[in-house]
């Protein structure tokens, strides 16, 4: 009887501790984003009010409207008492810096990068994981060593290369290098996943009369979907956040800036408008966060077989 009771207490105690730990981790991971979200919902200027409000008493979507360039002059006028910049000028500037363009650019760049780097690295991963040839490990290391090179090292010649190709100020100047920035990591992740699949798949397929390319396309790829998926997410996120190259090759032109480059520009132009900057941050994180959240199970599963498995 007493043993049973103590067991129940123990269970309840454990449950309590588990909840506490979960809450602690949640506070650690989410507080910064929570505060940015709260700032983004404050009316303009309220972010400097002391005492700080952890959550705005009157949340408003005004900052989001400003960031997306759909704010009206009158609205800016009522909010900007004391500001040196006239509302009409402000409205024009806000419109010219609308965050819609960078979001669209980033979507184009990241999707293209994810698609092409998956295509290229699944081919190379297949060769490394499942085909017989000499210098297999050397090939892998050749690819991996490339990925260790800091962008700071390659930025200047890459910039000059893009110039001689006439690609500066185009999205292609971000897409092409980013594909290959992600290929080594993707190859590694996918190769590890391919290696998990039984090796007699190919033999069975050959018996059924499949050609090598068909084996790759119709047998291996579908089976390795989780691995491909997590590699794709890696590539997508990598190019979504890539800053140094994007800011160099976009050369300050808003029409071709991706989110990180535009973010820096935006935060310089509206240095004191932290409600706006926060709204821009939320917008640029929301999409990738949502995507990763929905697919997190696959991402982690893909990684389980991936780079860090012993």
């Amino acid at each position: 009887m007493s043993a049973k009771l103590s067991h129940r207490y123990r269970t309840q105690y454990t449950y309590l501790m588990q909840t506490v730990v979960t809450i602690l981790i949640a506070v650690f991971c989410l507080t910064p984003m929570f505060y940015i979200l709260s700032t983004s919902l404050k009316p303009r200027g309220a972010e400097y009010m002391i005492p700080l409000e952890l959550w705005p008493s009157k949340p408003t979507l005004q900052a989001y409207r400003a960031v997306l360039g759909i704010v009206e002059e009158a609205e800016l006028a009522s909010e900007s008492k004391g500001s040196m910049v006239l509302p009409a000028d402000q409205a024009r500037i806000v419109k010219s810096l609308s965050f819609v363009t960078p979001l669209r650019n980033s979507l184009i760049v990241s999707s293209a990068v994810a698609a092409f780097s998956l295509l290229i690295s699944s081919l190379s991963a297949y060769a490394i994981a499942r085909l017989r040839f000499r210098y297999k490990i050397q090939s892998l290391i050749f690819l991996q060593l490339g990925a260790m090179i800091p962008i700071a090292v390659t930025i200047a010649p890459t910039f000059m290369l893009m110039r001689s190709l006439g690609l500066l100020r185009t999205l292609l100047a971000m897409i092409i290098p980013n594909i290959f920035y992600n290929v080594p990591m993707s190859t590694w992740l996918i190769a590890c996943y391919f290696a998990e699949l039984p090796f007699d798949l190919e033999d069975a397929a050959k018996v059924d009369g499949y050609k090598p390319i068909q084996i790759f396309w119709k047998v291996i790829i579908p089976l390795a979907a989780p691995g491909l998926f997590s590699a794709g997410v890696f590539a997508f996120l990598g190019s979504w956040g890539e800053f140094m190259l994007a800011s160099a090759v976009s050369m300050g032109i808003p029409a071709v800036q991706t989110v990180p480059a535009a973010m820096l520009n935006f935060s310089v132009q509206f240095r004191y408008e932290w409600t706006w900057i926060s709204a821009a941050i939320i917008l640029s994180v929301a999409l990738v966060a949502f995507m990763t959240l929905v697919f997190q199970r696959w991402v982690i599963r893909g990684l389980t077989a991936g780079a860090v498995k012993y």
Partner: peptide, 17 residues
């Protein structure tokens, strides 16, 4: 199969170094 990855990595990493 390895060729595209190799070309890219050579152009965007090794050549740059």
């Amino acid at each position: 199969f390895l060729l595209p990855a190799f070309i890219g990595v050579i152009v965007f990493y090794y050549y740059q170094i």
